[in-house]
Simulated assay, not measured.
Amino acid sequence: MRAAIVGAGIAGLACADALRAAGAKVILFDKARGIGGRMSTRRATTPRGEIAFDHGATHFTARSTDFRARVARWQADGCARAWPDAGQDAWIGIPTMNAPLKHMAQGHDVRLGAAVTALSRTDAGWFLHRERRRSGPFDIAVVAIPGEQAAPLLSLHDFGMARAAMAAHSRPIWSAMFAFGQPLGTTSAFIRGAAPVVCAVRGNARPQRAAAEHWVVQADWNWSEAHLADDPAVVCDLLLSELGALIGEPPPEPCFAAAQRWMFGQPSGSELGHLWNDAIGLGACGDWLTHGFVEHAWRSGHDLGAAIVAARALAGVER
């Protein structure tokens, strides 16, 4: 079975793992330059040296049996560790948040910088279209990207899937990254904020991170929407002031500041879990089909992969 997956975040990689375990040949296509999705890490050159900012998901939980087993394997392989500062069941990637996803990507054929603009289907199978390039044929195609981006790819082939994707509404999130020449006046590693800040994370308090004082501050959805069109420098200034309010004193002038706008930072979510049309071999997975967290995104991809394997195995027996 030849499978193409659009999106190499945790949902797409979880689906790829399940398909590969059943003997499928899988290729993943992602428009980004690196693995991670919203578990991404941004490396920056600062006056304090190179710092890797975990500027997406600050941590993840592991509560279901299957995902706990997956996380246990990451822990055994040295790419994840419990981080109780964020809660009793909180975990982080080691040495960066995207390390578990890089681990998942090992052994997969992942094509980065490959933005898929359309899907087409012929008697030969599925084809993926990129700028001046076409890849295929594939027996199945899986769309593992945010609902707003998935809808145009699905709309010509399964209107029910496209309608579900169009019903998804993602809220933006601004994340600001700061490096300082001196420690801030707090020993906290993780501060849960009140509006407009969701949390502030002291990166150098996390295991195997750069020693230089550095922080990530994440704004809430409402504030991020209100400041959606702001210049990143303005966002940095505003969230730096909010960081000062959290720690109870004005922070020093940062030696590095940058901001990332996550346009699809938090999806509205649904109870669908995943989507699969066995008649044409088309599926969709991602956190927009669940509840927007790392574990749920993994579950969506894992369950879709298992559903595809079961459907195709049954079809093979019947034939």
Results as ranks from 00 to 15, higher is better:
Ala200Glu: 04
Glu242Pro: 00
Glu213Tyr: 14
Asn222Thr: 11
Asp220Leu: 03
Gln182Met: 14
Ala212Asp: 05
Ala258Phe: 11
Ser188Cys: 06
Leu275Gly: 07
Asp278Ala: 14
Pro252Asp: 06
Arg209Pro: 01
Cys236Thr: 04
Ala297Phe: 09
Val217Ala: 07
Asn222Val: 06
Leu184Tyr: 12
Gln218Phe: 01
Thr290Met: 13
Trp288Tyr: 10
Thr186Cys: 10
Glu225His: 13
Ser241Val: 12
Leu289His: 02
Gly265Ala: 09
Asp237Gln: 14
Arg261Gln: 06
Phe293Arg: 05
Cys255Asp: 13
Val217Leu: 10
Arg202Pro: 01
Val217Tyr: 07
Pro196Gly: 13
Pro251Gln: 02
Cys285Val: 01
Gln260Gly: 02
Leu289Pro: 05
Leu246Ser: 02
Val234Lys: 08
Val234Ala: 12
Phe264Leu: 09
Ala297Lys: 02
His296Gln: 10
Leu246Trp: 11
Glu295Asp: 07
Glu225Gln: 12
Ala195Met: 12
Leu246Pro: 05
Ala219Arg: 07
Phe190Trp: 13
Asn204Thr: 12
Pro207Ser: 13
Pro207Ile: 14
Ala279Phe: 03
Val216Ile: 15
Glu249Asp: 04
Ile247Pro: 11
Leu240Thr: 02
Gly181Phe: 08
Glu213Asp: 15
Gln266Ala: 07
Gly193Cys: 13
Asn222Ala: 11
Leu289Arg: 08
Leu246Ile: 03
His274Lys: 01
Ala205Ser: 14
Glu253Met: 10
Asp230Leu: 06
Thr187Gly: 03
Glu271Leu: 12
Asp278Met: 14
Leu184Trp: 08
Ala179Lys: 04
Gly248Asp: 02
Pro183Asn: 09
Phe178Met: 07
Pro267Cys: 07
Asp231Arg: 03
Trp221Ala: 07
Phe256Val: 05
Cys285Gln: 05
His214Arg: 03
Arg202Met: 11
Gly283Ser: 12
Asp231Tyr: 02
Asn222Ile: 04
Pro232Thr: 07
Ala195Trp: 09
Ala179Ser: 15
Gln208His: 12
Leu282Pro: 05
Ala210Arg: 09
Glu253Asn: 04
Thr186Pro: 01
Gly193His: 08
